[in-house]
Simulated assay, not measured.
Amino acid sequence: MISDPWFYLLSIPALLLTNISKGGFGLGLGVIAVPLMALRLSVPEVVTLLLPILCLTDLVTLWEYRGQWSWPLLRIMIPAALVGIGFGALAIHRLPETWLRLGIGIISIDFVRRRWWGSRRPAPGDRGLRPAAGLFWGAMSGFTSFMANAGEPALTVYVAA
């Protein structure tokens, strides 16, 4: 049991924002859950705590959007994301805590940068699937999703570019 009150003061708002974001109202603010919680716990502990919650909310999200996905896109992105998740699983157990915290900070800052930059971009044109780019950005999405619950920016780079 975690008895640190600061953990709860940081984690409860972070998890609320994550769940609001999963519902489509939080403008992607759920990405702050890992960095906030990592202020009081190690990154592997945070990822372990968040995984069941995120899996449950992802199942609800999948149900809400059932039948609205693009199968050709998923055939490229899912295997690539699984590879990225695998790399994330290897990295989280082999990299020092300092490097993990730095990586999560960079991913989080990049997420915010892309949100601000992306809101001013013109609407993307239809450029097709681009399998090589899809494999790269899918793997990046899986990796950043595993490490910092921030897979959306990499996915957006591919889909909206």
Score class of each variant (00 low, 15 high):
residue 143 F to R: 01
residue 132 A to N: 10
residue 117 W to V: 15
residue 78 I to E: 05
residue 101 R to F: 09
residue 81 A to R: 04
residue 59 L to S: 09
residue 99 W to H: 11
residue 159 V to A: 14
residue 135 L to I: 14
residue 102 L to I: 13
residue 52 P to W: 03
residue 81 A to Q: 02
residue 33 A to M: 07
residue 37 M to E: 05
residue 113 R to D: 11
residue 116 W to M: 13
residue 4 D to F: 01
residue 58 D to M: 01
residue 18 T to P: 06
residue 18 T to F: 12
residue 61 T to Y: 10
residue 144 T to G: 04
residue 113 R to F: 15
residue 139 A to F: 04
residue 128 G to Q: 04
residue 117 W to S: 14
residue 67 G to M: 01
residue 129 L to K: 09
residue 138 G to L: 00
residue 97 E to Q: 10
residue 160 A to Y: 15
residue 142 G to V: 04
residue 160 A to I: 14
residue 109 I to S: 14
residue 17 L to N: 02
residue 4 D to Q: 05
residue 155 L to G: 15
residue 28 G to T: 02
residue 59 L to G: 09
residue 17 L to C: 11
residue 4 D to V: 03
residue 86 G to L: 07
residue 16 L to S: 13
residue 108 S to D: 06
residue 145 S to K: 03
residue 119 S to V: 12
residue 106 I to N: 07
residue 118 G to N: 09
residue 20 I to Y: 07
residue 115 R to A: 14
residue 112 V to T: 08
residue 102 L to H: 09
residue 156 T to Q: 13
residue 70 S to G: 10
residue 64 E to H: 15
residue 34 V to C: 08
residue 104 I to W: 04
residue 136 F to A: 14
residue 11 S to G: 15
residue 70 S to V: 07
residue 137 W to R: 08
residue 134 G to K: 07
residue 6 W to N: 12
residue 7 F to H: 09
residue 17 L to Q: 00
residue 96 P to Y: 03
residue 105 G to Q: 05
residue 50 L to Q: 02
residue 51 L to D: 01
residue 107 I to P: 04
residue 2 I to D: 13
residue 14 A to G: 09
